[in-house]
C-alpha cells in the first residue's frame, strides 16, 4: 500500500510524494484527479521502498495516464532506480532529476541514503560528504544497477 501526499509546487504545478510499496493496488487516483490538463506534475519517490511485478504494471499505467503533462521525478529511491535499469520504459517520458541512493562513510561507517543527480557516474562525481564526519562517502552499490549508463 502507498500513501500519497499532494500539495502545490512553487511554479504552479502539482507536487506529490509517494511513500510505501507499489503493488497491484497502486492507482495514484488522487494525483490523476487533482492534476489539471497541461499542469506540470512533480513526484517525489524517495519513500518507495519496493515495487512488485504487479506494481510495475500499475506504475507504468499511472505514468501513461498522466498523458502529455510535463512529469518530473525527484529523488527516486534505490527500489525505483534499480527497477528502471531492468525495465527502462517503466517511467514513460518522465524526467528524472535525482536519485536517493545508499552511501557508506569509509571513515566512520555511517550508512545513509543520499540524493545525487540522476546522471551517469554521479555516484562518484557527486559523492556526498558524510553528515557525521564530513568525509567523502562511498556508493554502496554499482552505478550500473542504479543510474543511467548509456
Amino acid at each position: 500500500m502507498v500513501k500519497i501526499e499532494i500539495g502545490p509546487s512553487d511554479n504552479g504545478g502539482l507536487r506529490a510524494s509517494v511513500v510505501g510499496k507499489i503493488d497491484e493496488n497502486f492507482e495514484g487516483q488522487e494525483v490523476l484527479k487533482q492534476a489539471r490538463p497541461g499542469q506540470r506534475v512533480t513526484l517525489r519517490l524517495d519513500g518507495v521502498r519496493s515495487i512488485s511485478s504487479l506494481g510495475v504494471r500499475a506504475l507504468e499505467h499511472f505514468m501513461q495516464q498522466l498523458g502529455d503533462r510535463e512529469v518530473v521525478l525527484e529523488d527516486i529511491s534505490a527500489a525505483v532506480a534499480n527497477q528502471v535499469t531492468m525495465i527502462p520504459n517503466l517511467l514513460g517520458r518522465a524526467t528524472v532529476t535525482s536519485a536517493k541512493l545508499p552511501f557508506v562513510c569509509p571513515s566512520c561507517g555511517v550508512e545513509e541514503a543520499r540524493s545525487i543527480p540522476y546522471v551517469r557516474d554521479a555516484a562518484t562525481t557527486h559523492a556526498p560528504a558524510c553528515s557525521g564526519c564530513g568525509a567523502k562517502m562511498d556508493f554502496d552499490g554499482f552505478s550500473e544497477e542504479y543510474l543511467p549508463h548509456a
Binding site: E24, S52, S53, L54, V56, R57, E60, H61, M86, I87, P88, N89
Partner: peptide, 16 residues
C-alpha cells in the same frame, strides 16, 4: 529489458 512488459493485472509472463 524492452520485452519485460507485463499485461494489465496479470503476472506478465515470468516478470516475477
Amino acid at each position: 529489458p524492452q520485452r519485460a512488459r507485463p499485461a494489465p493485472g496479470t503476472s506478465g509472463a515470468g516478470l516475477g
